[in-house]
Structures are given as structure tokens and as C-alpha cells.
Amino acid sequence: MFRIIRKSLKTGKVTGQYPAPTQPQPEVSDTVREKASVLGRSLTIREVDTGSCNGCEMEMNALMNPVYDAERFGIHIAASPRHADALVVTGPVTVNMERALKDVYAATPDPKLVIALGDCACDCGMFKGSYAVTGPVERHIPVDVKIAGCPPRPSEILGALRKVQGR
């Protein structure tokens, strides 16, 4: 027990210790902001991987570590689409994941936001045209916000999500 307390005291506060994002922030239109305004100060996200290389997943996970600590801004990760306000979709949509993506979208209650995360989700990236890829996320479901990058840094993702929250 004392070891744990000593460790925490020795470590101190690490939240916020990251370099400021250098990439330009993505566009968030007024209609999207208005849509998000009913959600108040919280944003509950369901993350859906439709064929990414898992780089974007790693950065989404990093968002939850003590350094970025997205929870302090009311951003949570939900275990089910039924509890989600927003879907964050990563990866080009593969032929095998197309149905699953549409099912998830249908299972998410309205009003809902869809955020395409990473170059693959925005325009298929390196996998554009492949026989196994059906197209970017917006070909299958309406996309509200696109966050470019391969993968975008956690600070950039956090910045974009804050912008969606209207802050």
C-alpha cells in the first residue's frame, strides 16, 4: 500500500504533458456543432475498426491514458453502440466489414455523429482501389467530421473532438 502511494507521489501530475498539435484542425461545420449541442458537455464514443492497420486504435487508446486523459473533457468510450453519441470509424471499409459497419450505424441511437478517423477512413489511403476494400466510410454511412493523418496524433484527435463539443 505504501509503495503504491509513494509511487503516485513520486510520479506527480502528468496530464497535459504533450506537445501542442502542429497539424491544422479539421473543419467542423455549424450544423455538426448544432447536432452535438444536444449532447451537452459529454461525448460518448463507440470506436469501430473497419480495416485499419491498428495504428489509429493505438492512438485512440492513448487518448485514455493519464497524459491526454480525455475523460476530463467528458469524452468516454462506450462498450456498445447503443450507448454511444458518436461513432469513430477507422480504416478503409473492407468487403468483410461492410455489413458490420452498417449494423453498428443502425444500432446507434439518434441523434448520432460519425467521425472518420485517419487517412484510410477519409479516403482509403494506401488501400484505395483494392479488391478487398469497398470505399471510404462516407460511401456507406453519412460522415460528419473527418480527421486526417496516418495516424493522427492523440493531441490532434483530442483537439478535433473538443471542436465537435464546441469548445
Binding site: 478503409p92 458490420a100 483494392s130
Partner: peptide, 11 residues
């Protein structure tokens, strides 16, 4: 598995 098959080897 193979839900994420993207055709890497063909690419």
C-alpha cells in the same frame, strides 16, 4: 478472422 482483409499482398 479475416474481417480486415485489405488485399495487402496483392497491393
Amino acid at each position: 478472422h479475416f474481417w480486415k482483409h485489405r488485399g495487402v499482398e496483392k497491393l
